[in-house]
Simulated assay, not measured.
Amino acid sequence: MKLRQWHYGLLLLPIVLWLSINSAHADITCTASMNTGTVNISNTITPSNANNAQITGTLTYSCTNNALSERYASVCLGVDGGDYNSAILHPRYMTGPNGSKLAFTMTLPNGALWGNDNDSVYKPNSFLIPPNTTVTGHVVINVSLLPNFGNTVASQGVHSSDFSGNHTTLTYQSHIDQTTSDCEKSPYEQRDFPFKVQATVINECKINTTSDIILGSRPASATSFIGSNNRAIDMTCTSGALYNIGLAPSNGDVTGRGVMIDTGSNNYLLPYQLLSNSSGRVWGNNGSTYATLTNGVTGEGNGTAQLHTVYVTVPNSDVKPASYSDTVTVHVNY
């Protein structure tokens, strides 16, 4: 009887696993830029335009297909609140000297806020890129200063907001199928596109209104009477701007000593003196600059309307009864 022995063994065969993923985001490279790095709203911001100055910037994105076959690309471009406060999108702030600020906003062509969440990123339609080809797109971004956030009190100097580093995000993805290419879904590539927004505040003074000084009716025998108007000059100057106001009667006298003329025949004269207070301080115009005007009224702007009272004294009204007037020119040196 023959016994047969069967030997059992475990034979290990190498198995190669192949996994095909229908995505090719690494086959493309994308970049973006904003106005070649700087969006300059204006070099002449004053209280007059600090609430509405604006400019358009151009956001450019380019994608290159490095594959041997065509690809669809999806890009998303987002921006946060900037270096002042990255979490706040509206308003954003530029900062300047001594804590001065300018509030601004950035919006897409449809007026929507440009931001960094799903509702505010800029996301153009997916686009086809032939092999070994670069496709470039553009979108206009509106950059505007905002009212009601204290921009008019900003002081002189350059104000800026920095969007470098992680303040901007370009995410992109490619796919052979347009319907499945989505830059908001992982996996995707990511990079930034640094830029800054800036505006320069300059010193300016603007006369908003002037009001007449009405002396009223006086008897011909009256002597040395005085009148005034506490809203005679209404003006606004840049915050921190030093100014010196000169007053010039129509006869050009630099010491503020003018002459009113009767409005009927223009034959009779009534002398008067311009004053800066009721105590008799002369208000004239003996200089053409802030430094050379020594009989003017000085002050410092605060970005809001400031009122100045003008006093007039008439030393003697013993003249022909009539209506008398004169025109005074206001000179503001800053």
Rank of each mutant, 00 (worst) to 15 (best):
G165P: 02
Q173R: 15
H167P: 01
H167Y: 07
L170N: 08
F193D: 06
S161I: 01
F195E: 04
T168P: 02
D182N: 14
L170I: 04
P194Q: 04
S160V: 05
Y172S: 09
T169M: 14
Q190C: 00
S160L: 10
V158R: 08
C183F: 08
Y188Q: 11
D177T: 07
H167C: 03
P194D: 03
N166K: 09
F195N: 01
Q178D: 04
Q156V: 13
S181Q: 07
T180H: 12
A154E: 02
K196T: 04
N166W: 07
S174G: 10
H159Q: 05
D177M: 05
S164G: 12
Y172C: 08
G165I: 01
Q173N: 13
Q190T: 09
R191V: 06
V197T: 05
Q173H: 14
C183A: 15
K196G: 02
T180Y: 09
D182C: 03
T179S: 15
C183H: 10
T180K: 10
S174Q: 08
S174W: 08
N166T: 14
Q173C: 11
C183P: 04
Y172K: 03
A154G: 09
T171A: 10
Y188K: 14
G165A: 09
F193G: 02
S186R: 13
I176W: 15
C183W: 06
S160D: 10
S161F: 00
R191C: 02
S181M: 10
E189L: 15
S155I: 10
T171C: 08
S161Q: 00
L170G: 08
F195P: 02
G157N: 05
P187H: 06
E189W: 09
K196V: 00
Q190N: 09
S160N: 12
D182Q: 05
S164D: 06
D177W: 01
E184Y: 03
P187F: 07
H175A: 15
K185E: 09
N166M: 08
T168M: 05
R191S: 15
T169V: 12
D177Q: 00
T179R: 10
Y172H: 12
Q156H: 09
S161Y: 03
D182V: 07
E189V: 09
D192W: 01
S164V: 03
V158C: 00
T171H: 11
N166A: 11
V197R: 01
Q173V: 04
K185C: 00
V153M: 02
Q178E: 14
S186C: 08
E189F: 10
T179E: 12
T180R: 12
C183L: 05
